[in-house]
Design a protein around this nucleic acid. Structure first.
Length: 641
RNA sequence: GGCCCCGUAGCUCAACUGGAUAGAGCAGCUGACUUCUAAUCAGCAGGUUACAGGUUCGAGUCCUGUCGGGGUCACCA
């Protein structure tokens, strides 16, 4: 048995001697159409159109042709029927390009067929360029904020959707030509972490993650839960007290409403009568005053959380370029408000609170400084945005945050605009829908929150079980097997989440998330692994033979056209900030290759040297694009599976 | 209640941003492994795109209304 690392990483011939055409005029079909159709319209009818206004589709498989141009939009200006325009354009393209060899017209649809010789040439271009599909630097810098957890409890399924969206959006923007900075703001201060701190101090008896053998962020989360438990007990007991009876009498609560009244009163109880509440609040005040003992406790517990997060992030395969801590940024923005006050962007009320009037933009008045002069969330966000601009020079800022904050970001961006911030118009809220379970929302009270670490362990567990049943990698060393199981399990999870359009809320069915058949991550991986297997067996071949190819079969054409459209997929995904485009694309490409594989067209036993070389190139290119596309989603394709 | 988002096959999702006969997967049923990996493929079945109008060559997509679901309306984050 050969060692894993050497036997599996060689995937066949990488760079054979090839005839590389010397001209620089190579254009992919969409670009060719965008050049030649406006030119044709100008020559034929004498009017100009914007190339971007063209509608170019892959020809549906029930019709003859490869690419379809829709001519309805030009009919009026040309003063001809859409069919006539299509005919004339078809003639023009045949006469004035090498690539198109025939056409047909159905109503206003011009179906164009690309000549066979185009494809082997095209594949060579793909294989020569490892980053085929990527776009040139556009000179812009985008800052992407995602994850942004609180430090009082571990990450859960909601964070996973956020993180996967943020990560892949960052990758996609990079591929689309942006310089990208990945960042997060860590919400490390506030009443929540104080609750964990207090509970640990009061009831923890010196326990540590080490002493209890608990992952350190879960350890801190445990004490947060303990706080809630003790608080609830305290509250329940209090409800029988004279003070409680007095409250009921004052508020004139009827007998049958007592229970629901108490559940709504909880927050007020925390702020008024609760002993634990008072202690937690005192802790927050001590923290703000910089009391050393409190700060040390805070540092200790936060460090536990960070150590835990680091493991989760690493397992998920993500990392950040920079971090912002709320404890450093929560005072930012106040100066900016003062400044804006003098410029009449904001106004002050009699009680000294500061507001902005957004009624002209069909929004409300929004508070930006409390009457006691302290800041609110919005104030911080204003300050942090400017700081980030100063720190990084990013002219585009993308906030990956759940859609419950749609309104907040609408207001934030409008305020930044009013302030004349140079990046204001390029701020985007990548808003995504809630992740629900088959039986409804995740609720911490009902213990239905799906923990991130548990979830990853589960999917890897299922992948391991499946893989051992299939038995195809049992000959490999144990650690290589484990690596593969991990790759497969995470692929299932990540793909399941990322294939859904971000703005839609999604239902997360744990059973379906570990499916490995059909429209899933492992299905796509399997196509790539299949390519690797074929290339391994194929060995050396003469790449130049491919240029002598005489026919391209339908089963090959589908895969070719998909590879061909990869650059547009990246551009669209970047424009829409929507990684699901890439996921669905990868699935289509994998599907088309599987189909080709089963079509009876053999690579290794091809009918001619030309076909063999061509299919070898096709297989290599498919693998290259699958790896590239899945990489944008944070998914790896294993060597074997 | 005001504002915002969503509603597509039994279930989970697509539909190139207004283009051709709305496509996949899962679940169900039939077939294909001595063949380049069956985590695959081929096929059957499944739809009044919530409903009613409108806009135009053309509507799941845009507009209006109705019904259903979610979010949000804090000197919280």
């Amino acid at each position: 048995m050969e060692p894993f690392s050497t036997s599996l990483t060689s995937i066949g011939p990488k760079k054979n001697k090839r005839i590389i055409p010397q001209d620089n005029s190579f254009m992919r079909i969409p670009d060719l159409i965008k050049t030649k159709v406006p030119e044709g319209l100008k020559n034929l009818y004498g009017f100009d159109i914007s190339p971007n206004a063209l509608i170019i589709n892959l020809t549906r498989k029930e019709f003859e042709g490869d690419y379809t141009v829709v001519t309805f939009p030009f009919a009026k200006q040309a003063r001809k029927s859409p069919g006539d325009v299509a005919e004339a354009l078809g003639e023009y393209l045949i006469a004035n390009t090498e690539e198109f060899v025939s056409y047909n017209v159905i109503k206003g649809f011009l179906n164009l067929s690309v000549g066979t010789s185009y494809w082997p040439d095209f594949l060579k271009r793909v294989l020569e360029n490892d980053s085929f599909g990527y776009h040139d630097d556009n000179g812009r810098k985008a800052l992407v904020e995602f994850s942004s957890p609180n430090t009082n409890k571990p990450l859960h399924l909601g964070h996973i959707r956020n993180i996967l969206l943020g990560w892949s959006t960052s990758k996609i923007l990079k591929a689309a030509g942006y310089d990208v900075v990945k960042t997060q703001i860590i919400n490390d201060r506030g009443i929540a972490i104080c609750k964990s701190m207090l509970a640990w101090q009061e009831f923890g008896a010196g326990a540590t993650p080490e002493s209890t053998g608990t992952k350190s962020d879960h350890f801190v989360g445990h004490w947060y839960v303990q706080f809630e438990k003790h608080f609830k007990a305290e509250y329940g007991e209090w409800q029988g007290s004279d003070a409680a009876k007095k409250v009921l009498a004052e508020k004139d609560v009827k007998e049958e409403n007592v229970e629901s009244f108490w559940s709504k009163y909880k927050n007020e109880y925390f702020n008024t009568h609760s002993g634990l509440g008072a202690k937690a609040k005192q802790m927050l005040l001590d923290w703000e005053a910089g009391k050393e003992e409190t700060r040390n406790l805070w540092k200790k517990m936060n460090q536990w959380v960070y150590d835990g997060f680091e493991v989760t992030y690493k397992n998920l395969g993500v990392e950040f370029d920079s971090l912002y801590y709320e404890s450093n940024t929560y005072l930012l923005g106040k100066d900016i408000i003062e400044d804006g006050l003098s410029k009449d962007i904001f106004y002050k009320k009699d009680d000294n609170s500061v507001w902005i009037d957004l009624e002209k933009d069909k929004l409300d008045h929004k508070l930006v400084l409390r009457s006691d002069g302290t800041s609110v969330y919005m104030t911080q966000d204003i300050g942090t945005a400017r700081k980030r601009y100063e720190d990084t020079g990013a002219d585009t800022m993308i906030y990956v945050v759940a859609d419950e904050q749609n309104h907040h970001f609408k207001v934030l961006f409008k305020i930044l605009e009013r302030m004349g911030e140079p990046y204001a118009k390029s701020c985007h809220h990548l808003s995504y829908g809630m992740v629900n379970l088959p039986h409804g929302r995740m609720k911490s009270r009902e213990g239905t929150v799906v923990d991130a670490d548990d979830l990853m362990a589960d999917v890897i567990g299922v992948a391991t079980k499946n893989s051992e049943e299939v038995g195809t990698v049992l000959d490999l060393p144990k650690e290589d097997q484990e690596k593969i199981f991990e790759q497969i399990g995470l692929a299932a999870l990540k793909f399941f989440i990322i294939k859904v359009n971000p703005k839609k809320s999604m239902i997360f069915n744990p059973e379906e998330s570990v499916d490995m058949q059909g429209q899933t991550g492992p299905y796509v991986q399997n196509a790539g692994v299949r390519c690797r297997g074929i290339l391994r067996k194929l060995g050396e071949y003469d790449g130049n033979e491919a240029l002598k190819l005489e026919t391209v079969h339908d089963a090959e054409k589908e895969t070719l056209r998909l590879i061909h459209s990869y650059p547009e997929i990246i551009a669209d995904a970047a424009k829409d900030l929507d990684p699901s485009h890439v996921a669905n694309y990868c699935y289509s490409l994998a599907k088309s290759y599987h189909k080709f594989f089963n079509s009876g067209l053999s690579v290794i036993r091809a009918e001619s040297e030309a076909a063999k070389a061509f299919r070898g190139d096709l297989t290599q290119a498919t693998l290259q694009i699958l790896e590239s596309g899945m990489d944008l989603l944070g998914i790896e394709i294993p060597e074997r599976m």
